[in-house]
């Protein structure tokens, strides 16, 4: 799978991860994939809600070491 852009939101808390994500996704074309790295637990519930509204899809959610969660999000 080709990742078009990586968004590093490590250390950021609400609302910055979702603000940065929304802005970054605006710059992607349909079907392109964004990798998001974050440490805010809130993103785990904010992201599905945002995807439900925007139509984008979470392809993968992985727990990495150091409390980092990696999301792969495809723009639709």
């Amino acid at each position: 799978m080709k990742i078009t852009q990586t968004l590093d939101c490590k250390g950021l808390s609400c609302p910055m991860p979702m603000m940065k994500l929304a802005k970054a996704m605006k710059g992607l074309n349909t079907d392109e994939v964004l990798e998001m790295l974050g440490t805010d637990p809130g993103t785990k519930s904010d992201l599905p809600n945002w995807c439900q509204k925007s139509g984008s899809v979470i392809l993968e959610e992985t727990e990495l070491t150091g409390g980092v969660t990696r999301f792969l999000i495809q723009k639709k």
Partner: peptide, 23 residues
């Protein structure tokens, strides 16, 4: 905040640390 993110993105980027996190 939106203006800051557009004009000064470096204010919310940089080195961060995460201690005591567990899988």
């Amino acid at each position: 905040l939106i203006w800051e993110m557009d004009r000064f993105p470096s204010w919310s980027t940089g080195k961060s640390y995460n201690f005591l996190a567990v899988k």
